[in-house]
Design a protein around this nucleic acid. Structure first.
Length: 425
RNA sequence: GGAGAGGUGGCCGAGUGGUCGAAGGCGCAGCACUGGAAAUGCUGUAUAGGGGCAACUCUAUCGAGGGUUCGAAUCCCUCCCUCUCCGCCA
């Protein structure tokens, strides 16, 4: 959420910064609401001050022995009543404006960081670096072909169980997925991350706090009978882990590694990535999340990205790091690095992790603060996939394929899967 | 699902109509004591939004929303949530 003070005092510069995302933004109406709201607050509160003064005086006089039914007390009561009525009218107007202001503020995306490169869409993203040597020989299979051959998962039967875009991992496939989750969590916790296994049903306040609501309601699955939604990412429950809290500054940064299944409606992606593990309504993900002191968030962003990269490096999966331009930035992000893993079968880099610094955007929505001396300030939040498990499996299958049709597993993963390689059964 | 209890500051916990933003404790910070520390003592320490260069000051907030009153943490109504016991259940 944007800072309402900034909107009130510097609407033009805020509009300009938001405009870097590619769409012109007009804040004049919002600024007017904010201004009116503040004016009303001023009159209302000074009126209330007068009312409080009268109330106290009545109490004092009665205590001092005045007749509670006497004329002078009655006169004060009358004044009190008249103020009360005026305040009631003002309060109603003010409440309306406050609600409007809040509602509006929640619909604006975060301000891009000044360091975020300008651009209109993904074609303007910038490749920062590459790691590893991609396999580029011809005739390699795509992961879903391998999976079919090795019977790692069943998509057709999953339609029977649920719908399209669901997958049932079976046999070695299920085992590999489980091994990957354990491997990732072990790697992160060995570096000091606190492991989290959160609820995957989350309430509206949680989704609003991390930025999915109110704008992206159609992207999430909702439980009709309850105020609960299926979480689209562990980022949501982990943000709300500290919602409405003040975190002592000596505890920062708090670093969490949360495994959760993730649920996305993928509205508007008909026909894209219909085969395999790339785009599903339900997938597994290990998410890294930091609550950081505002002064530390830039470094934290480098670190969280490095921690995500470490998973790919340990798994010997070639990848590249992309910096998103302003036009491709997510709603809550100020700056984002995407990790794209090389899929030899598909012959393409695919996003496998997105590491974002959100500044105080989520912290303001979720009211997560820290204390520094006397001052209370909003913390900064960061998130990064470490990693999307299904896509990781796809990369391992495509990268590890050997001439005899078996799949070599990365060394680091062998103890987790209990197999040297995957073979047709 | 049935019965009961309760929601107060960073935490615990008092407070049933008047200067209560709220006793006391814990925690935290500063100071004193000390060679240094512990212990002890003193002082300070809620959040949000206004106004002011600042000192400071105003308003709101005791789960949420209404009501009674000149005045509500305290009384009334509605709702939400949490806990305990019973039932059911992985």
């Amino acid at each position: 959420m944007l800072d309402q003070r900034l909107v009130r005092d510097n609407p033009d510069s805020i509009a300009k910064e938001l405009g870097r995302r590619g769409k012109a933004v007009d804040l004049t109406r919002l600024q007017l609401i904010a201004q009116q709201q503040r004016n009303l607050e001023e009159t209302r509160s000074s009126l209330q001050a007068e009312g409080n003064r009268i109330g106290k005086e009545v109490g004092q006089r009665i205590k001092a022995g005045a007749d509670p039914q006497g004329d002078d007390v009655a006169e004060l009561r009358k004044q009190g009543n008249s103020i009360k009525q005026k305040v009631a009218v003002l309060e109603e107007e003010e409440k309306l404006l406050t609600t409007q202001l809040k509602e509006q503020l929640l619909t604006f995306p975060n301000l891009p960081s000044p360091d975020c490169p300008e651009g209109k869409d993904e074609t303007d993203n910038i490749e920062l670096r590459r790691w590893g040597t991609p396999r580029e020989e011809k005739g390699l299979e795509e992961h879903w072909q391998i999976a079919e051959r090795l019977k790692l998962f069943d998509t057709e039967r999953s339609v029977r169980i649920a719908q399209s875009r669901f997958v049932t991992l079976m046999g070695q496939g299920a085992r590999l997925e489980r091994g990957l989750i354990n491997f990732m969590l072990d790697l992160h916790t060995s570096k000091g991350y606190c492991e989290v296994l959160p609820p995957v049903l989350v309430n509206t306040a949680s989704l609003t706090g991390s930025g999915q609501l109110p704008k992206f309601a159609d992207e999430s699955f909702r439980c009709a009978e309850d105020d609960l939604w299926l979480t689209p990412t562990a980022e949501v429950p982990v943000t709300s882990l500290h919602r409405d809290e003040i975190i002592p500054s000596d505890q920062l940064p708090l670093r969490y590694a949360a495994y959760s299944p993730c649920f996305r409606r993928e509205a508007g992606s008909y026909g894209r990535d219909t085969r395999g593990l790339i785009r599903l309504h339900q997938f597994n993900k290990v998410e890294l999340y930091w609550f950081a002191h505002p002064d530390q968030s830039a470094e934290a962003h480098q670190q969280i990205t490095a921690d995500a990269e470490a998973v790919l490096q340990e798994l010997e999966l070639p990848y590249r790091v992309i910096e998103l331009c302003t036009g491709d930035l997510g709603f809550s992000a100020r700056r984002t690095y995407d990790l794209e893993v090389w899929l030899p079968g598909a012959g393409a880099y695919r996003e496998i992790s997105s590491c974002s610094v959100c500044g105080d955007f989520q912290a303001r929505r979720s009211s997560i603060r820290t204390k520094e001396g006397k001052a209370t300030k909003l913390v900064h939040t960061l998130n990064g996939s470490g990693l999307a498990v299904g896509r990781t499996m796809a990369a391992i299958l495509e990268t590890g394929q050997q001439p005899d049709g078996s799949i070599r597993l990365p060394k680091a993963l062998i103890p987790y899967v209990g197999l040297e390689q995957l073979e047709p059964k």
